[in-house]
Structures are given as C-alpha cells and as structure tokens.
Computed example of a mutant assay.
Amino acid sequence: MKIAFYGSSLLSAYWNGAATYYRGMLRALSARGYDITFYEPDVYDRQKNRDIDPPDWCRVVVYEGTIEALKAVAEEARHADIVIKASGVGFEDNLLLTEVLRHAPEHALRIFWDVDAPATLAELRADPGHPLRQALDTLDLVLTYGGGDPVIRAYRELGAVDCVPIYNALDPQTHHPVAPDQRFAGDLGFLGNRLPDREARVDEFFLIPAIRNPYQKFLLGGSGWGDKVMATNVNYIGHVGTADHNAFNVTPKAVLNISRSNMAETGFSPATRVFEAAGAGACLITDYWEGIPQFFAPDLEILVARDGHDVSDILDSLTTERAREIGAAALRRVLAEHTYDHRAEEADRVFRSARRRQVEAAE
C-alpha cells in the first residue's frame, strides 16, 4: 500500500523532536512492504541542518514554504492508499489538513497522526471551530505517539472515530551501545532544547541538583541555554548532533529525562530520548509520569525521581556498577518489547483493522 505522509521533517532533527520517531516508524513500515512518500516543508532552516541523507526506504519530497507549493504537494495525496497528516508540520498546518483531505481518494484511509497530543488537544478544546476538530468525524483514525487512555477518551469525546497510541520506541540501527567519549564525561547528563514549557522542570530536576551536588559533574546539551545562569559544575556544550547521541547517553554515569510539563501531566508519554538512552545501555533517571511501568520496571530498568531532591539522593547513592546494571537491563527490555519493528507491527494491524471497518461501512 502507498502512504502519503505529511510531516515536519524526516531529513532534519533541527528543532524537530519528531524526527527520530518518523525515521524509526517509517523505516519499519517500509520493511513490512509499505511504499512511503514523506512531504516536508523547507522552513526553520531545517534543510540547512540536515543530519541524514534521503533514505532508500522512503521517498522524500521537500517543498517550498509557500501556499502554492503546499497545494501542489497536497494534490499528490490522490495517488495514496493511506493519507497521513501529522501534527506540528510547521507551515500552514490547518490549510495543509484541508487540502490533503480534499485530495485524498475515496478509498484511502485518512489519518491524523498526533506527535504532541497534549498541545493539540488544548488547541481543540479552546476552539470549537478548529479545522482539525471539525474534520475529526471524517477521519478514519487518529494515531498518537503517547497519551494512553486520557488521550484516547479526549479524542473520542471530540468526535474522532477511533484513537490509538503508537508509542515512541527504539531504532536499534540508530541508537545502540558505543564506546564512551570523554567529551561527554560526567555524573549526570541532560540533553534537551530550551523550551518555555520545560525550563522550570529543567531548573527543578537538573540545575538545582547541580547546586546541591557541587562535587559532581553535570553535562547539559541542547540549544538555547547559553545565557542561562548555571552552577560552575555544569558543563554546557550546546547543540549535540544526532550522530553523537549514543556517546552522550552512554558516557556519563547516568542521563536524565525531563518531560515537558503537559506530557508529564498527561502521562503515558515516554519521550524518544527514553528509548534512545535505553538503546545505548544508559542508566536513565526520569521525572515521574503515570504509566512508566508499562515501559520499564522502576529501580530495575529505570530510576524515577519525583523532584529535584530525588535526583540529588539518587546521585548520592548511585554507584557505577549499579548504573551499568540498570542500563543493561533497560537495553534488554527495549530490544525485547519496544523497537520500531514492534510498533510497525502494531501500526500495520491498526491500518488493516481500519480498512476492514471502512469496507464494512461501504457495504
């Protein structure tokens, strides 16, 4: 089956947190026989900061950030069996949704794939006339990369025919154990761009513990933190390219996951970095969110901190040997249950089920 997928970017992870998810999912779906074309706009300097070449498992069409170019690529939906519009494309999202659905053939599955359900649902609740909210009952399916039962219920209450989470996962070809790199040496590393809805939590879970643990070395990677006041034991290294993520994850004694506030409140929303770290065999400390045991066993495969004091306490007692044991256990778990091959199998099953419903409704 042919998929026309309209998303933010497959070729660039620059200010594009969905890149890892798209790459892992689409590569695994391609391996299952899907013929995929990914359409991405040339915006936010992403094309100047590509970190992969166009892959052989997916055709990529980059279009100019103009209305004319958007309408031209939206017309290509007419050739597809599955038409997918993702959230957060970054250029005229509402118009793109309207145009893509207008050109999707009658036989095609029409899917909205939400890579930031808490933010999207907040928009829909605030605006009854939102184009996506108006279109929900015309879609065959809403997929999300997180959220669990609260998100499923919310989408159904707003009119979606069905909503199914297809969670983040690991692409073992991209994220895997590597040798440590002394550029990333430290006791605790955190990798994340500076975002308004995450900054206060970074203060709480990372920067304040750095003050409380002055004899330990903290490593901060990501864009936008240059003018942030930090303790002298925090080494800020700026943007870390995807090619260095494995080394960043595996070199410090432990790495930290800090969810955006709305993701933490929603729960069942493991970020891609959770699986990236596990895939590298890293010892991961995560902030608390509901649903963690569905993915990793606390204290055995992951360490959980409810606040900055917990982070400090964990670091005080964490030995190198225990950190390695936790990282090894997390790697075993993620390879056994949480790869994109597992997710693609689930997505394939969901597509086929939606197709059956579509055929039955037409009879």
Rank of each mutant, 00 (worst) to 15 (best):
S259K: 00
D203F: 13
Q173P: 01
I258K: 08
A231R: 07
F206G: 01
Y215Q: 07
H175K: 02
L220E: 03
N262C: 10
I258F: 11
A247M: 04
G241N: 13
G224M: 05
N213C: 12
N262V: 06
N213R: 07
T232D: 12
Y215I: 07
G224F: 08
P172Y: 14
R260A: 09
V250Q: 10
D187N: 04
P180S: 01
P252Q: 11
Y236A: 06
H245L: 13
N249W: 15
Q173G: 14
S259Q: 13
G221T: 10
L191M: 12
P196S: 15
F248L: 11
L170N: 13
A210E: 02
G186Y: 00
M263W: 00
D227I: 07
A254E: 07
A210L: 03
R198M: 14
V229Q: 12
Q173L: 15
P214T: 08
I258Q: 13
T174Q: 12
R198Y: 06
A243M: 09
W225G: 00
R183Y: 10
F268Y: 14
S223F: 12
D197W: 15
P180G: 04
G226C: 03
K217L: 12
A271M: 06
F268L: 09
A247P: 05
D187W: 00
G238H: 10
V240S: 04
R198H: 04
G241P: 01
S223N: 11
M263E: 11
L220Q: 11
N233A: 09
P214H: 00
G221C: 13
F205A: 01
D227N: 11
A254M: 08
P177R: 03
N262R: 04
F268W: 14
A185L: 07
F218V: 01
E265N: 05
N213M: 09
E265V: 03
G241F: 12
R198G: 04
H239V: 11
F184K: 04
N233E: 11
P177Y: 08
N193A: 15
S269M: 08
I208H: 03
T232W: 11
N235M: 11
T266F: 03
P214Y: 04
M230H: 01
E199D: 13
N213T: 08
G186T: 00
V250K: 06
D171Y: 10
D171G: 10
R212H: 05
G186N: 03
F218M: 09
N193C: 10
A210W: 06
V229F: 03
I211K: 07
V202G: 06
N249C: 15
A254K: 05
S261R: 04
P177M: 09
A243W: 09
P214M: 07
V255L: 08
A231T: 02
N246K: 06
N213V: 02
D181L: 05
L191D: 10
S259T: 02
N235C: 14
I237D: 05
F206H: 07
R260W: 10
H176N: 09
V202E: 02
Q216R: 14
H175E: 13
Q182T: 04
H239F: 14
H239Y: 11
L191A: 01
A200G: 02
T174M: 13
L256Q: 13
L256A: 15
V202F: 09
L207V: 00
E265G: 00
G241R: 12
D197L: 14
R212L: 14
G226M: 07
L191T: 08
N233W: 02
S261C: 10
V255Q: 04
K228M: 03
E204G: 01
R198A: 14
L195S: 06
